[in-house]
Amino acid sequence: MKQSKAWMGVSLVLFVLLAGVSVYAFTKGGGEGKDVVVATVNGTDIGKNKLYDEMILNGGSRVLDNLINEELVKQEADKAGITVTDADLDAEIASFKKQFSSDEEFQMMLMQYGMTQDDLKKQMPMQVRLKKLLESKTDVTDEEIQKYYDENKEAMSTPEQVKASHILVATKEESEAILTQLKAGADFAQLAKEKSTDTGSKDKGGDLDYFPRGAMVKEFEDAAFALNVGEMSGVVQSEHGFHIIKVTDKKAAATPTLDEKKADIKETLVSQEIQELAGPWMEEIKGKSKINNTLQTS
């Protein structure tokens, strides 16, 4: 469910994001008058006007359509007395982030589109206005919520997980020497920072965070899941080298109840209905509006 929700949210947002990025590229350093050199190739200048003309030919019409849509949504929101506050934008960001399995996945999405969270926030007002305009037109029933829960219960469940730290070294002799130090009272996190060859975890004291079965190589997984919280393994060999593992926490497998997930499910279904309503609604508004689009092809 996490993945489908995330991409549903992405599809809603990227329409605005890509328009914002393109508009920024079109207007950066804008203004009438003298052409501005944006690149030089072996002494030959490429001017902003040529860049602008080329961008108009390659997607300019779509960007202008997006700007028109954004203005129409803003005008309809103004007529309805709808405002967008900073709290609205923060709530929308928080809702959007929930659709990703982790903050790292969310940050990767932003990196993919060359954006920061502040950039994303600046592009959110249109989505918030559209949601406020159309939310009252949605009609999500308890039966639909129940059906969604039944169909996605397994995906909403979380498996048994272990939180563990480890120290990874290349040889059995090294690991045995470290194990001796640990049994004598040495600090696990400190030794991980000093000795571990796992660059992804050593600076965090060897912390690997929570992971389910199937996420690690079998030898490591079997050892970690066999330990109780607070226990430390002996030397564990895997294809990566020699590990010493310490389990710091465990989470039992869990399936959320309908009551626990009802609000999230309703939010998902409302967003889906808004997606379905947005196209026809926008066409209706366009049909009632006087729009002069000079880039529109005849």
Rank of each mutant, 00 (worst) to 15 (best):
Q3N: 13
S11K: 02
V16F: 11
L18R: 01
A25F: 11
G29D: 13
E32V: 10
G33T: 01
K34H: 06
A39W: 08
T40H: 12
I46Y: 01
N58K: 03
L64I: 10
I68H: 05
E70R: 12
V73T: 13
A77T: 01
V84L: 05
D90E: 14
A91M: 10
K98N: 06
Q107A: 14
Y113R: 06
G114S: 15
T116H: 03
D119S: 14
D119N: 15
R129H: 08
K131T: 04
L134A: 09
D142K: 02
I145P: 04
E151H: 02
E154F: 12
M156H: 05
T158P: 00
K163Y: 09
S175D: 06
Q181W: 07
A186V: 07
F188Q: 01
S201L: 15
D222Q: 14
A224I: 08
F225L: 04
A226E: 11
N228M: 15
M232Q: 12
V235I: 14
V236T: 10
G241H: 07
I245R: 00
T248N: 11
D249M: 13
K251G: 02
P256S: 05
D259C: 10
I265K: 04
E267P: 01
E276K: 05
G279Y: 15
G287V: 01
T294C: 01
